[in-house]
Protein backbone atom coordinates (compact mmCIF):
# COMPACT_ATOMS: atom_id res chain seq x y z
CA UNK A 1 0.00 0.00 0.00
CA UNK A 2 2.84 2.33 0.90
CA UNK A 3 4.45 1.74 -2.47
CA UNK A 4 1.21 2.47 -4.28
CA UNK A 5 0.68 5.62 -2.33
CA UNK A 6 4.11 6.85 -3.34
CA UNK A 7 3.65 5.90 -6.94
CA UNK A 8 0.43 7.88 -7.16
CA UNK A 9 1.83 10.78 -5.21
CA UNK A 10 4.63 11.07 -7.74
CA UNK A 11 2.12 11.51 -10.56
CA UNK A 12 0.28 14.25 -8.67
CA UNK A 13 1.10 17.84 -7.93
CA UNK A 14 4.20 18.67 -5.89
CA UNK A 15 3.90 18.32 -2.16
CA UNK A 16 2.80 21.60 -0.49
CA UNK A 17 -0.76 21.75 -1.84
CA UNK A 18 -3.07 19.40 -3.66
CA UNK A 19 -4.76 22.40 -5.22
CA UNK A 20 -3.96 23.50 -8.73
CA UNK A 21 -4.74 26.78 -10.43
CA UNK A 22 -8.28 27.28 -11.69
CA UNK A 23 -8.58 25.89 -15.22
CA UNK A 24 -11.71 23.92 -15.93
CA UNK A 25 -10.41 22.43 -19.16
CA UNK A 26 -7.06 21.30 -17.78
CA UNK A 27 -5.85 17.71 -17.74
CA UNK A 28 -7.66 15.56 -15.20
CA UNK A 29 -5.95 13.89 -12.31
CA UNK A 30 -6.20 10.09 -12.54
CA UNK A 31 -7.63 8.07 -9.69
CA UNK A 32 -5.60 5.67 -7.57
CA UNK A 33 -4.40 2.67 -9.66
CA UNK A 34 -5.92 0.29 -7.11
CA UNK A 35 -9.33 1.58 -8.16
CA UNK A 36 -8.96 -0.49 -11.37
CA UNK A 37 -8.52 -3.53 -9.17
CA UNK A 38 -11.57 -2.61 -7.11
CA UNK A 39 -13.78 -2.34 -10.18
CA UNK A 40 -12.29 -5.56 -11.54
CA UNK A 41 -13.31 -7.42 -8.38
CA UNK A 42 -16.87 -6.23 -8.92
CA UNK A 43 -16.63 -7.23 -12.59
CA UNK A 44 -15.39 -10.73 -11.69
CA UNK A 45 -18.45 -11.28 -9.52
CA UNK A 46 -20.76 -10.09 -12.33
CA UNK A 47 -18.84 -12.17 -14.89
CA UNK A 48 -19.18 -15.24 -12.71
CA UNK A 49 -22.96 -14.74 -12.48
CA UNK A 50 -23.18 -14.39 -16.28
CA UNK A 51 -21.15 -17.58 -16.72
CA UNK A 52 -23.41 -19.54 -14.35
CA UNK A 53 -26.53 -18.26 -16.12
CA UNK A 54 -25.01 -19.25 -19.49
CA UNK A 55 -24.26 -22.75 -18.23
CA UNK A 56 -27.73 -23.10 -16.78
CA UNK A 57 -29.40 -22.07 -20.04
CA UNK A 58 -27.18 -24.45 -21.99
CA UNK A 59 -28.01 -27.28 -19.64
CA UNK A 60 -31.74 -26.54 -19.77
CA UNK A 61 -31.71 -26.58 -23.59
CA UNK A 62 -29.97 -29.97 -23.62
CA UNK A 63 -32.56 -31.41 -21.26
CA UNK A 64 -35.38 -30.56 -23.69
CA UNK A 65 -36.94 -33.56 -25.41
CA UNK A 66 -36.87 -31.89 -28.82
CA UNK A 67 -33.27 -31.61 -30.07
CA UNK A 68 -32.24 -27.94 -30.25
CA UNK A 69 -30.49 -26.45 -33.26
CA UNK A 70 -27.84 -24.90 -30.97
CA UNK A 71 -25.12 -27.39 -30.02
CA UNK A 72 -24.02 -27.62 -26.40
CA UNK A 73 -21.42 -25.07 -25.41
CA UNK A 74 -22.31 -22.23 -27.78
CA UNK A 75 -24.23 -20.21 -25.18
CA UNK A 76 -21.65 -20.95 -22.50
CA UNK A 77 -18.96 -19.82 -24.90
CA UNK A 78 -20.76 -16.56 -25.64
CA UNK A 79 -21.30 -16.01 -21.91
CA UNK A 80 -17.60 -16.60 -21.31
CA UNK A 81 -16.65 -14.06 -23.95
CA UNK A 82 -19.05 -11.51 -22.47
CA UNK A 83 -17.74 -12.19 -18.96
CA UNK A 84 -14.14 -11.80 -20.11
CA UNK A 85 -15.00 -8.53 -21.84
CA UNK A 86 -16.66 -7.23 -18.70
CA UNK A 87 -13.73 -8.32 -16.54
CA UNK A 88 -10.89 -7.14 -18.77
CA UNK A 89 -12.13 -4.18 -20.79
CA UNK A 90 -14.84 -2.42 -18.78
CA UNK A 91 -12.85 -1.62 -15.60
CA UNK A 92 -10.05 -0.22 -17.73
CA UNK A 93 -12.40 1.91 -19.81
CA UNK A 94 -14.19 3.16 -16.72
CA UNK A 95 -10.92 3.95 -15.03
CA UNK A 96 -9.73 5.91 -18.04
CA UNK A 97 -13.03 7.77 -18.29
CA UNK A 98 -12.92 8.89 -14.67
CA UNK A 99 -10.88 11.66 -13.22
CA UNK A 100 -11.01 14.71 -11.04
CA UNK A 101 -9.41 18.04 -10.72
CA UNK A 102 -9.14 19.97 -7.52
CA UNK A 103 -8.29 23.63 -7.62
CA UNK A 104 -8.23 26.54 -5.22
CA UNK A 105 -11.99 26.87 -4.85
CA UNK A 106 -13.68 23.97 -6.66
CA UNK A 107 -13.69 20.26 -7.32
CA UNK A 108 -14.36 18.90 -10.78
CA UNK A 109 -15.48 15.28 -11.16
CA UNK A 110 -15.67 13.55 -14.54
CA UNK A 111 -17.09 10.08 -15.13
CA UNK A 112 -18.94 7.84 -17.58
CA UNK A 113 -17.94 5.84 -20.66
CA UNK A 114 -21.07 6.30 -22.72
CA UNK A 115 -22.98 8.85 -20.67
CA UNK A 116 -20.38 11.33 -19.63
CA UNK A 117 -20.94 13.77 -16.84
CA UNK A 118 -18.63 16.58 -15.92
CA UNK A 119 -19.57 18.23 -12.64
CA UNK A 120 -18.03 21.15 -10.81
CA UNK A 121 -18.79 21.78 -7.15
CA UNK A 122 -17.60 25.05 -5.65
CA UNK A 123 -16.25 24.65 -2.12
CA UNK A 124 -18.28 27.64 -0.99
CA UNK A 125 -21.50 25.65 -1.58
CA UNK A 126 -20.65 22.40 0.15
CA UNK A 127 -22.85 21.48 3.10
CA UNK A 128 -20.86 18.58 4.44
CA UNK A 129 -18.31 15.98 3.38
CA UNK A 130 -18.13 12.20 3.80
CA UNK A 131 -15.15 9.91 3.45
CA UNK A 132 -16.41 6.31 3.19
CA UNK A 133 -14.58 3.02 2.96
CA UNK A 134 -16.15 -0.32 2.18
CA UNK A 135 -14.42 -3.53 3.28
CA UNK A 136 -12.71 -4.14 -0.07
CA UNK A 137 -11.83 -0.47 -0.40
CA UNK A 138 -10.19 -0.65 3.00
CA UNK A 139 -8.13 -3.66 2.03
CA UNK A 140 -6.93 -1.79 -1.05
CA UNK A 141 -6.29 1.46 0.82
CA UNK A 142 -9.01 3.32 -1.11
CA UNK A 143 -11.80 5.67 -0.04
CA UNK A 144 -14.79 7.48 -1.53
CA UNK A 145 -15.11 11.20 -1.02
CA UNK A 146 -18.70 12.49 -1.12
CA UNK A 147 -19.57 16.17 -1.24
CA UNK A 148 -23.11 17.18 -0.26
CA UNK A 149 -24.66 20.34 -1.65
CA UNK A 150 -28.03 21.94 -1.03
CA UNK A 151 -29.01 21.72 -4.70
CA UNK A 152 -31.81 19.35 -5.68
CA UNK A 153 -29.78 18.14 -8.64
CA UNK A 154 -26.40 16.76 -7.63
CA UNK A 155 -27.37 16.81 -3.96
CA UNK A 156 -24.36 14.61 -3.44
CA UNK A 157 -21.36 14.25 -5.71
CA UNK A 158 -19.16 11.29 -4.97
CA UNK A 159 -15.61 10.67 -6.06
CA UNK A 160 -14.61 7.03 -5.54
CA UNK A 161 -11.18 5.52 -5.96
CA UNK A 162 -9.03 7.99 -4.08
CA UNK A 163 -6.20 6.84 -1.89
CA UNK A 164 -7.44 6.99 1.70
CA UNK A 165 -4.77 9.45 2.82
CA UNK A 166 -5.45 11.70 -0.12
CA UNK A 167 -9.22 11.57 0.52
CA UNK A 168 -8.71 12.58 4.13
CA UNK A 169 -6.33 15.36 3.12
CA UNK A 170 -8.84 16.63 0.56
CA UNK A 171 -11.60 16.56 3.15
CA UNK A 172 -9.53 18.57 5.59
CA UNK A 173 -8.54 21.15 3.02
CA UNK A 174 -12.06 21.50 1.63
CA UNK A 175 -13.45 21.73 5.13
CA UNK A 176 -11.28 24.71 5.79
CA UNK A 177 -13.22 26.43 3.02
CA UNK A 178 -16.67 25.73 4.33
CA UNK A 179 -18.39 28.39 6.28
CA UNK A 180 -20.89 26.23 8.09
CA UNK A 181 -20.28 22.56 8.03
CA UNK A 182 -22.95 21.18 10.36
CA UNK A 183 -26.22 20.26 8.70
Amino acid sequence: MGANRQASAASQEPAPSIFSEVDDEAELTKLHPNYKLLMRIGAVILGFVILVVGLAVDGALQAEEVPMPIPFGVITGLATLLALFIIIRIPLARYNARGYQISRDRLRVVRGIMWRSDTIVPFGRIQHIDVDQGPIERALGLATLTLHTAGSHNASVSLPGLGHDLAVQMREEIRAHIKRESM
Binding site: S117, A150, S152, H153
Partner: peptide
Protein backbone atom coordinates in the same frame (compact mmCIF):
# COMPACT_ATOMS: atom_id res chain seq x y z
CA UNK B 1 -26.38 27.80 -7.58
CA UNK B 2 -24.67 24.90 -5.89
CA UNK B 3 -23.06 22.94 -8.69
CA UNK B 4 -22.78 22.86 -12.46
CA UNK B 5 -22.76 19.65 -14.46
CA UNK B 6 -22.23 19.09 -18.15
CA UNK B 7 -23.83 15.78 -19.12
CA UNK B 8 -23.55 14.03 -22.47
CA UNK B 9 -24.91 10.77 -23.83
CA UNK B 10 -23.29 8.85 -26.69
CA UNK B 11 -25.23 10.69 -29.40
CA UNK B 12 -24.78 14.14 -27.92
CA UNK B 13 -21.07 13.51 -27.50
CA UNK B 14 -20.76 12.54 -31.14
CA UNK B 15 -22.84 15.52 -32.24
CA UNK B 16 -21.20 18.03 -29.96
CA UNK B 17 -23.89 19.24 -27.57
CA UNK B 18 -24.66 18.70 -23.90
CA UNK B 19 -27.23 19.19 -21.18
CA UNK B 20 -26.27 21.70 -18.53
CA UNK B 21 -27.63 20.78 -15.10
CA UNK B 22 -27.56 23.51 -12.50
CA UNK B 23 -27.83 22.53 -8.87
CA UNK B 24 -30.55 24.75 -7.42
CA UNK B 25 -31.85 24.40 -3.89
CA UNK B 26 -35.48 23.35 -4.05
CA UNK B 27 -35.72 23.39 -7.83
CA UNK B 28 -34.60 21.69 -11.00
CA UNK B 29 -32.80 23.72 -13.62
Amino acid sequence: LHSVEIAQGPISRWRGYATVHLGQAGGVF
